[in-house]
Each structure stands twice: as structure tokens, then as C-alpha cells.
């Protein structure tokens, strides 16, 4: 009688203990979740509060200057446009070529493919500042000697986003079902004809979203460009690959380090513009992804 009573109460208490532990665990999970959400919210609100006051049409059309009251971001906007577009186009071509070669023209278990794959994984793990060193040693000075120009920045960012783009485009090609290829071969098409007329059109949405993400990475990147000496108030737009330049992230960096309080508002306003640009690009990527959801 008493024993069974004891066992029952024991079972009861372990159940209670388990329930309490479960509740505690859920609280921990919610905390980690809230950390991410609160971070994002605080970051956005804090930037909006400091930056909205400095936003105006003049802010977009004026040039950076040492005087906060008549500073704007025009040359940085154009600089970012030049550098990002160039590196986006070049890295897309290189990434697409690499991905097609690896996915469609080599054996997955061949030594060559394993070697190149490992190499790309390694590159993807290299800190961005190291790409800055590479750009400094090889492009700005050294063999190419392009100096601190739009071309150097674009080349450096191209090398930096290339591994990401390759991974994204490979995923896009992998997602195309092999039945499509086999059907094409069965009709007598060669490999390249199959790739060009069947696989690439089918993979286009995946390639587009992947490259937009790569380009947005290039748009927001600052570390390697710090080494490329673009930390000056450039008061003219780039006219070619050999022009001096500045880009939005670097202008934000520069303004954040200024002593005068007024520059903080400018930095925040520039952040708002940068985030809006990135947000728009991501929106485009999401729309493409949703529109073209093909079920194979």
C-alpha cells in the first residue's frame, strides 16, 4: 500500500521535474530567438533615429566633403554602382564557366573536380581582408600596378565573391533534373547543346538569385577596400576604370571615425540608403525565386 503510493509520488515528481526542465529549455530557446530579432530591430531603429534627420534629396546629390553641413553621397553611390556592377558581371561569367565545367563536363569523382572543389571551399573560407592584401600586392601595385582605382576595387571584389557565386551557380545547375539532360542526349544533342539550350534556361532563376546575393555581398563589403586606399572624400564621380573612387561602405566607415558629432548622422543616413539598396536587391531575388518555383 505505502510502497505503491511512494512509487506513484516518485513518478509524479519526476514528471514534474521533466516538465520544469522542458519549460526552462523552451525559455532558453526563446531567448536565443529574441536575441536575433531584437538585434535586428535595435539595429534598424537606432540607425533610423540617428540618420533620418540627415536624409534629404541634397544628401543624395551632394558630394562628400570635410564639412558635414554640405556633405552628400553622390560619388559614393556612383562608385558603388561602378565597382559592384563590374565585379558582379565578371564574377558571374567566371562562376558560370567554372560551375558548368565542374557540373556538366567532369566526372564527379575525378581528381580534377575534387581538387578544384576543395580549392573553392578553401577560398570561400579566406577572410575578406586577405583579398584586400591580394588586391594591394597584385592589382594596385606589383604585376598589374593599376593604382588605387575603380578597376583595382572591382578586381579585388570579383576575386572575393567568386567562390560564393560558384557555389550558388553549382547548386542551381545541380537542381536541374538529369532526366532533362538525358532527354536532350536521346534526341542527339551534344553536351554543349544540352547545357546551352536545356540546362541553362532551366537553371536561370537559381543562377539569378545566387548572383544577386553575391552582388549584394560586394555592395556591402568594406574590409578589402580599406586596404585599397579609398578612404578619402572623393568629390567627383568615376569616369572609367582608372578613376579614383569611393564606395558607400567606405564612406560610412570614414564618417563613423570622424570626431565631429554631425558626421554620425551622415553615417547613419548613408547606412539607411545602403540597407534600402540591399533590401531592394534581396526583394528582387525573392520575387524571382517565388515566381519560378518549378516542380520537377
Amino acid at each position: 500500500m505505502t510502497t505503491s503510493h511512494f512509487v506513484a509520488s516518485l513518478a509524479d515528481s519526476t514528471t514534474r521535474l521533466r516538465r520544469n526542465k522542458d519549460a526552462g529549455f523552451l525559455i532558453v530557446l526563446w531567448t536565443s530567438l529574441l536575441l536575433a530579432i531584437i538585434t535586428l530591430a535595435t539595429l534598424v531603429i537606432n540607425t533610423l533615429i540617428s540618420g533620418v534627420g540627415s536624409l534629404s534629396p541634397d544628401f543624395l546629390t551632394w558630394f562628400p566633403s570635410p564639412f558635414p553641413e554640405d556633405s552628400g553621397i553622390q560619388s559614393a553611390l556612383f562608385g558603388s554602382l561602378w565597382v559592384t556592377l563590374t565585379s558582379g558581371v565578371v564574377s558571374l561569367i567566371l562562376a558560370l564557366g567554372t560551375a558548368i565545367y565542374l557540373e556538366e563536363f567532369t566526372n564527379p569523382n575525378s581528381r580534377l573536380q575534387r581538387f578544384i572543389t576543395t580549392n573553392i571551399q578553401t577560398l570561400a573560407g579566406v577572410p575578406s581582408i586577405v583579398y584586400g592584401i591580394l588586391g594591394l600586392a597584385f592589382v594596385v601595385r606589383g604585376p598589374l600596378g593599376w593604382g588605387f582605382t575603380v578597376g583595382s576595387a572591382a578586381a579585388t571584389l570579383t576575386m572575393m565573391v567568386l567562390p560564393l557565386m560558384i557555389v550558388a551557380t553549382r547548386e542551381a545547375l545541380k537542381a536541374v533534373p538529369s532526366s532533362l539532360r538525358e532527354g536532350s542526349y536521346a534526341l542527339g544533342a551534344t553536351r554543349w547543346q544540352t547545357v546551352y539550350r536545356q540546362v541553362l534556361p532551366a537553371a536561370r532563376p537559381g543562377i539569378a538569385t545566387g548572383s544577386i546575393l553575391g552582388v549584394s555581398r560586394a555592395l556591402g563589403e568594406s574590409a578589402p577596400l580599406i586596404l585599397l586606399g579609398a578612404l578619402a572624400y572623393v568629390s567627383y564621380n568615376p569616369t572609367g576604370f582608372d578613376s579614383d573612387f569611393t564606395v558607400l561602405p567606405l564612406l560610412i566607415f570614414k564618417w563613423s571615425t570622424e570626431v565631429q558629432e554631425e558626421f554620425r548622422g551622415l553615417a547613419a543616413a548613408a547606412i539607411i540608403v545602403l540597407l534600402l539598396l540591399l533590401f531592394a536587391m534581396n526583394l528582387v531575388a525573392i520575387i524571382i525565386r517565388d515566381r519560378s518555383r518549378i516542380r520537377w
Partner: peptide, 13 residues
Amino acid sequence: VLAGVPTVVFGFF
């Protein structure tokens, strides 16, 4: 979105 925030923005933050 959080993963896409540029590091310079985090630096300002």
C-alpha cells in the same frame, strides 16, 4: 536579413 547586413553597419552599431 540579419545575415545580409554589411559589417560596416554592424561596426557603426
